[in-house]
Design a protein around this nucleic acid. Structure first.
Lengths: 132, 132
DNA sequence: GTAATCCTTCCAGTAACTGGAAGTTCAAGG
DNA sequence: CCTTGAACTTCCAGTTACTGGAAGGATTAC
């Protein structure tokens, strides 16, 4: 499939897909006319990249994560270690994001909608994590 | 407190704090010696910024979110609308991140640790969200 | 008093895209 | 078959959000 279709299916702009190829993240086959040609397998990797990036992993981390897709020369144990590390990071992200959501919810529910410029709840909430 | 202390307490590098001041996100008082002087309230905002950025909100979105701290001229209803929108986005992020974690967990648990280069689970998992 | 550390500004560099120009190829309609 | 418009190509410049380092002034520690 062409890059436009791969873009649609993966959620990544065509520009970004070309950029990823340029930096060696995911190289595509070429059709006879010079157009890039993507398989469903490529689309899965692209979608995986889209999510990894969206969740704050750097491109270099994504390069490691991609080895989970078995397209690298890495040792299986090596790849497993990477996955385990990243899983820990994701769990931490999830916990922090949940806490952040609660902060925002409190702010919206208790500190807005009236005309109080200084809400006492705000400092308690936002400071909680800072004072560790 | 000086920028170094504010940096420690907020989790943002001093460089970044100065950058945020430069682009008008959070301006600090100045002490007699010209040093920036931060209050605990500033630190709360900085920490809030640190988290918002880490969770993928752009600097411009952070500018909006900061209005939750009551330091803007915005209408209360306006601010509440922003908060509600962002809450929706965070909920979506949480759902996606959870799904991504599960993908990674499956990959680590079922597709690695042995020497199978092509795992049939991978395609099912990674394609799931792409085919909507 | 002086050395180390922290602060200041300024300017250059980096990561990860993103937009636009100029040209090629393809699919659809006449 | 020809044309027109969309999708593709490469290349280069611009943007966002930092990040590093130089040059110099202020503060703290011995």
């Amino acid at each position: 499939m062409n890059i436009g279709t791969a873009s649609e299916k993966s959620g990544l702009p065509a520009k970004t897909i070309r950029y990823y190829e340029e930096i060696g993240l995911l190289k595509a086959d070429r059709a006879g006319n010079g157009y890039r040609d993507y398989s469903m397998s490529d689309v899965h990797r692209l979608r995986f990249l889209q999510r990894s990036r969206a969740f704050g992993f750097s491109v270099e981390e994504c390069r490691q994560l991609l080895s989970l897709y078995g397209d690298s020369e890495r040792e299986s144990a090596d790849v497993k270690a990477i996955a385990t590390t990243k899983l820990g990071e994701i769990d931490r992200k999830l916990a922090e994001l949940t806490e952040f959501r609660n902060t925002l919810r409190h702010l919206a529910d208790h500190c807005l909608g009236n005309n109080l410029p200084d809400c006492p709840i705000i400092d308690g909430l936002s400071g909680k994590s800072a004072v560790q």
